[in-house]
Every structure is written in C-alpha cells, then in structure tokens.
Design a binder for these strands. Structure first.
Lengths: 249, 249
DNA sequence: AAGTGGTCTAGACCACCAT
DNA sequence: TGGTGGTCTAGACCACTTA
C-alpha cells in the first residue's frame, strides 16, 4: 500500500486488513464525519493503490460492524446514531407481545461526582476522576419500565451540561456523537436478576422486592475506548430482553 | 446456474444467493454430514458452473452463520456441535469474575406428555401432540446454578430414550445432531427476572423468592424449523448472562 | 508434492440514484 | 447522463496441511 512488500517476505497482515486499519484511523481522525459519504470505491482503490476488490473487502468489514453503510447508487456513508439504529442495534427491550416501540426518555437526575472504583475500572479512568451521572426513566406504552443509571468520564465530555441532556431530541448516543465526536459502535452487556430497592421501586411504580432485570452495559468507541457505563433496571412483568444467537444466512 | 438467465431479464436473485440456497438444500438432504468436508471450492465452481469467487462468496455466507467452517490447507467442513461450540455460541452464562467454564449437566427428570398451548406454539406443533420434557441441573464450580426445562416434539425424535440423555458424553445439541440429523444453528432468547418458587428453589439451594434470571430459548434448524423450547432459570448471585452487541472489525 | 483455502488483481457489466 | 455500489469472471500467487 504505502510501501511495496519486501521481496520474498509475504506481508504478515493482508492488504485489506491494513486498509481497514487505515480507514478506521481516517474515521477516527474525523476526516469523514458521521452521515457523510466516504470516497467512492474506485477512488479509494486509486488512493491506496489497491484493486477495487480489495477495497470492497475492507469496506465489507466495516459495514458488517455497523460502522459504514452502503447505499447502492448513492455511496458509502459513515453510520450515525439515528433513532432507528438505537432501536434496532442497542435497545433490546421488547414488549411481551406486540411490536417493538421507542421508549420515552425522562431525565430524573443529573450530577457530577468522583468515580468510584467500579466506575473507574469500567471507564478506564482513575478512581476519584470527575464523572457525570445521569438517571433516566424510560417509559413504554406510557408506563415506566426502565431506570437507566449512566456514568461517563467528565474529561471526555468537556462542557457537557444538564440542559443538553434535557433538550436532546434524539438519542443519547447521537449527543455523544454530534457534540463530542464520540461514536458508540459496540457494547458489552451483563445481565442478572435483582430486586427493586427503596430507591428504584417508586420510580417504576412497583412494590419493593419486585424482581427486576439488571443490565450492566459498557459502551465502546470504534477505537475500543469505553465511554459509558450504564446500569439499567427493567420491570419485566410485561417486557423482555431479547437476544438472537446468530442471524443465519 | 442450471439455466441461462433469460436475455435482457437480469436475474432477480444473485448467483451466489442461489448457490447458498443450493448448498443449504444439499446440506439439509444430508449429502454432506456434520464433521465432513464439503467439496473443494474449485470443484464446486465446476459443479455449479460459476467462478471460484462466486463460490467463495456463497461459502462466506454460511461460514458467517456458523454452518460451515473453513480450515486453510484442509478444506471446508460442516459445523458440528462440539463442547467448544456449545460454550462459545450457545452458552451465555459466565462467572462474575474469572474464566468461562463448562457446566456439569445432571439429568433431573425425563417424561413424556402432551404439548400445552405455549409448547405447541413454540415448537410449531398442535396442542396435545406428544412432547418430551427434560429437566437438567447445571453446575458451575460445583454449585447448582441453572435449571433447564427442555421441551421437544416427540415426532421429531423417534425412539429417543431417557438413557440417551443420561449417557450423553457431549452436549444435547450433538445428540440431536448425531442421532436425529437435526442441527441447531440459531436460537432466539427472551430474558426476564423471576423469583425461585417452591419447585425450583431446592434444586438451586436458594430460599424461595430469590431473584432468578429466566431465559426462554427457542432453537432452530438451518431450515428455520423450531426444534427445542428451553426455559432456563439462573441463579445470578455469582454468575451473569453476557451479550456482546457487535463484534467490531 | 499435491491439494486446500486465503489474498489480490483488472477488468466487465449491471442496478440504482441523482441531475 | 454520469456516478455510485453490486455482481461476476478468470485467473495468479501465496500459506498451510497432509501424505
């Protein structure tokens, strides 16, 4: 790509892998922003001195990872955090019966504080570093179903205000993206069964001791940096968490 | 592929998609069995009269779906239900800390009965049809952590005996595969929080009312037929369910 | 040495979209 | 009409496995 491979020394890393790395670096540097088109495949092939097939294979990788989005006849675009993407990729609570719906999000609490040990570990910061904590209440069908406790490192979100959260028209991840250039592309979730304590129960309008589904999520950027720790508590009386193991061909 | 495309009428379905369909059909017909190699890509290209690139694209699809497995220098093999595959693809319970481990499975109960409405719906049979119900207790680190209640349609597993379950050296899905030619390739799971009742609590050695994670799984064959309904109840005091949202590039 | 999958090329032609 | 991604070809060469 930049250099010819040394003679007789086959490249340890395939060209298209290297191209993925370069595309990710270019994306990370902000040369192509969410919502924008990246250059056409033929142009990328020229720019990097590889064949179009190799470009396609590299782009395939990033499309599979939901980082890029192909649109035939139009171009290839950097993925954005629309409501739809949030609903289909990151929101896994569905009604027991009936169609999936968008939650209505209400900000309950917003505060600054110092990272405790668990927060620090999850966010890859030092205990005591400034964190911002947000509590949201999510309603489905007009009923309060989920309490989200979100923690983010203040250093990654300079100047973030409570007002930005209140006035957010779209999803939280689109706020991270638009205002701070931080794109969540993947997350790890751990689930367990818990019970409603005195603090959570009234928010969800359930008795204390009601079993709740507790979801601990760490959201990552394309570079792999953790940028959000989220503890969701879900009333699963009429809703469920879904997971599909393998989409199939 | 079999016929030339009508002149001026572009094929509605791409060649490689059609090839996927044919490969799936051949797999379903049992021409290539789990663990066996399918013909080399060059041979498939000849056999179906397409280029090797098209064959590779079709095989890519089935490899992504965990139906086929490529091994460089050896061949492409039909996936089997090994312990490893079970652990990495279908078993999502991990210790709170420490490495993932295989569960030790103990058969608690085995019975035949008639499908109730929910079982019938899940297994795509008629209520009242014969079903086999299995209850397993799964231990991790020597502790009983999971109770699995499995229901399968008896008609799909002719001659299945309790003994086969007791003597199973590997996983249940490998029994389905080896003895009945039914390969589980994907599953849908729905999770909610529940509490231990009088029946489950003693099996897990917890007090009644202990919060448990309830997982309802329907497992499907490559053809999309549901072949197993499984209700797992998990003591999440020291273990968790994990879900990765997007593997990334 | 023979056979396998893995990478890469340099095109051709098509379907789709904007103008 | 021109540009985009989508499909498909017919090879070449490589890395790896097995015999």
């Amino acid at each position: 790509m930049s250099d010819a491979p040394p003679p007789g020394r086959p490249p340890a890393v395939p060209l298209y892998r290297d191209l993925v790395r370069q595309l990710v670096a270019t994306l990370g540097a902000g040369e192509w922003k969410p919502g924008e088109a990246i250059p056409a495949e033929r142009r990328l092939a020229e720019r990097y001195g590889v064949s179009i097939g190799t470009v396609r294979k590299a782009i395939d990788t990033l499309v599979d990872a939901n980082v890029l989005l192909r649109q035939q006849g139009r171009g290839t675009f950097v993925a954005t955090h629309t409501r739809d993407r949030m609903l289909f990729q990151f929101f896994h609570i569905v009604p027991e019966r009936g169609p999936k719906a968008y939650p209505v999000v209400k900000l309950v609490a917003w505060s600054r504080g110092k990272a405790d040990r668990k927060e620090a570990e999850a966010l890859a910061v030092v205990p005591g570093d400034a964190v911002i904590r947000i509590r949201n209440l999510l309603e489905l069908d007009g009923q309060p179903i989920i309490v989200d406790d979100i923690a983010i490192a203040a250093a990654r979100f300079p100047g973030l205000t409570e007002r930005q959260f209140r006035e957010r028209p779209s999803t939280i991840y689109s706020l991270y993206e638009d205002a701070f250039g931080l794109s969540v592309v993947r997350a790890r979730e751990r689930l367990r069964a818990d019970t409603a304590d005195a603090e959570i129960a009234p928010l969800l309008a359930v008795p204390r001791g009601t079993p709740l589904l507790a979801i601990r999520r760490i959201a990552h950027t394309l570079a792999g940096d953790p940028i959000e720790l989220r503890l969701s508590r879900v009333n699963t009386a009429r809703h469920e968490y879904f997971a599909d193991i393998d989409g199939g061909p």
